[in-house]
Design a protein around this nucleic acid. Sequence first.
DNA 1: CATGAATGAGGTTTCATTCAT
DNA 2: TATGAATGAAACCTCATTCAT
Lengths: 215, 215, 215, 215
Amino acid sequence: MQLTDDIRSSSSDPELVASRREHIARCATHVFVKKGYDRTNVDEIADACGMSKGNLYNYVGSKEDILYLVIDRGLTNLTKTIEDLCDRLSNVAPADALREFIKTLYRGVGEDADFTLFTYQETKNLSPTARQRILDAASRDVAVCEELLRRGVESGEFKINNPMLLAHNIITLGHMWAVRRWFLGKRCTLEEYIREQTESILKTILVDERTTIES
Amino acid sequence: MQLTDDIRSSSSDPELVASRREHIARCATHVFVKKGYDRTNVDEIADACGMSKGNLYNYVGSKEDILYLVIDRGLTNLTKTIEDLCDRLSNVAPADALREFIKTLYRGVGEDADFTLFTYQETKNLSPTARQRILDAASRDVAVCEELLRRGVESGEFKINNPMLLAHNIITLGHMWAVRRWFLGKRCTLEEYIREQTESILKTILVDERTTIES
Amino acid sequence: MQLTDDIRSSSSDPELVASRREHIARCATHVFVKKGYDRTNVDEIADACGMSKGNLYNYVGSKEDILYLVIDRGLTNLTKTIEDLCDRLSNVAPADALREFIKTLYRGVGEDADFTLFTYQETKNLSPTARQRILDAASRDVAVCEELLRRGVESGEFKINNPMLLAHNIITLGHMWAVRRWFLGKRCTLEEYIREQTESILKTILVDERTTIES
Amino acid sequence: MQLTDDIRSSSSDPELVASRREHIARCATHVFVKKGYDRTNVDEIADACGMSKGNLYNYVGSKEDILYLVIDRGLTNLTKTIEDLCDRLSNVAPADALREFIKTLYRGVGEDADFTLFTYQETKNLSPTARQRILDAASRDVAVCEELLRRGVESGEFKINNPMLLAHNIITLGHMWAVRRWFLGKRCTLEEYIREQTESILKTILVDERTTIES
DNA sequence: CATGAATGAGGTTTCATTCAT
DNA sequence: TATGAATGAAACCTCATTCAT
């Protein structure tokens, strides 16, 4: 599934286009995250990419396209991490799977904290269709988590009133580590945050309390 | 508590300045929320205020000052709502008080959803000192909630591992209704959201489960 | 001789107008000299005058009028000093009269150095007619000096090829103390400047060299 | 000696930058001299340069930079004229050398009268460091002239009390032809001015009076 | 494919002047 | 007479995008 289908480019070699766009997205991420979308100008992006401004526009139709590439790439990375993880966890006991899921997700958010915050701030600058694509991708993360929860429910290990909502809580509380770092960063470490949120969540859903005790 | 002390104005009548700034903040909120901070220009703000651009600058030193007025006003309103509420709840049983707190807070966020989202997106555009003031104000909300939780703990009704973190969860999950309306809005109503989050939270902290049953 | 005839004012009492204008000229001089004409705004002038902006405009038709008042007042002061001096010197021997003239003139420039420089820089901002008036006033200073020189020539004490030009040199070299203070100020004192210029001038024009020796 | 080192430009080709700046300085001189610095707006400068405003700012960081370029270029031209002249005059007899120096300098000022006047009026608008550079350049002119005078003193042809001051007089009286053209222009020609000032100066310093007689 | 000079609309801010009170 | 809030034109500067080379 190509998310970047309708970004105009004046180049004909699709492979070159793809690799250049990957390059642009990677480099632009840094500048965007540092200065914000509106306050970053195209010269700075081109500099960061080591390309000329004119050439940049051979692979991208507008500054907004670059924003899309950046957000899409970051989200795709995270989604892939999550999906791969879920595949690996398909045979693990639900409670442990959930613990692993949260830990991996939250650490991923922690590593890319700047990007996560950026997403919350700048997605609004996308055109409606681009924005919709991004939101759809973000929705999938919740869906994946929800699926994990449902497996636990089906196996009888979890009792969850509204798995969709709990999945949403799990995902967004992870984001909050990045978005509200100015608050949380002064009050606990990421590992503490992960541990406490994990236990708090498990406590609400575990049918058999004893499973809660973990190293 | 006047947060807007050091915004320069060329008018000397403090009452007029205060009333005009209130007016500006109220009117600018609408334009800002609709178009975003960077994409709103000062002409549009002046129009929305029914003032000339020049006169606007008699009460405000820069466009950023307007952003500060807008965010500060919105946050102050919410904080006041919360604090008044907590005063009223000081004699109420902790579980009911928490239920009431969440309901009021989340409904407040729901009513001002655009503004809440705006805050998450645009606080970054403030100068460091202005930004710090805003974040301090936002921190107080968490502190108020934490205090409420601690009362329940002291009375023996709640058992909470980390009240600060739970308070933070309560507050931010409220915000999420506004920030992720594109997701939640399609999946449940605000009242459902409130009810489910409330029960989920209470379930984790209530010492005596039976208290969960509410009218 | 009223130089300020055609400055519009909305006041009818001519005495009040005159006294207010004198006040305005005196106060505005300081701000103008400090910040330059273009970089001084009318608010600052009104502040310096202790009047409201609106009232200021009762006595003056425009910002340029204020510039005129300021320059005119300064020049009139200097011219009067010079003319009074020449009256007192009418019975003094030409060489001593010239010495006294130069000393007084140059010290006057030295005291008002900022204003003198200001005149060189900002007269250009006057309207043609106002400018002409100022230049006429400035020409009179040269004429007065020239007259002094001619008296020495007639008495046989001076031999001067072109009294007009020498008078002009005497006047402008005086101005230069103010205009090129950044250069001269680091290299000699005003009194040295006066002494050396005086002797250099007298040496050129004295018929009998011995008169050069002075206390 | 490049005085314009630290003017920011967004172009990287130093030759292009230099040639464009030369072009800008030359064209801007006309507009500035005609309307004054503050009353000239950037659109007019761009028009005069035949460039778009945006492109102008590729070679210059601010309007003030343009002022600097203009003044610096004019002064550099004059200084070079003077220095070249002095080289050529190094073997000429001091009195004749001085005559030639004054004639060339004053004619140079006469040709660039508008620019000379402009310098007296607008140097004040430069930032302190830029202003200092300009004043340093202007000081060198005096130093060159002083050197010329000292050669005459050493050769025994001149007797000068204070060569620095006389050099300063020579230079500034030259400037006065431009600065006070409104006065002098109506009373004598430039050539008369040159002749009379020259003779007046030589008369004061020549040891042997007879040398004064020249064609 | 690559460059970067050129464009010009649009942004924020200032300020001389007016006029209702 | 005195005030100062209000006006709006005009100032300087930025920057996404194009296009000749």
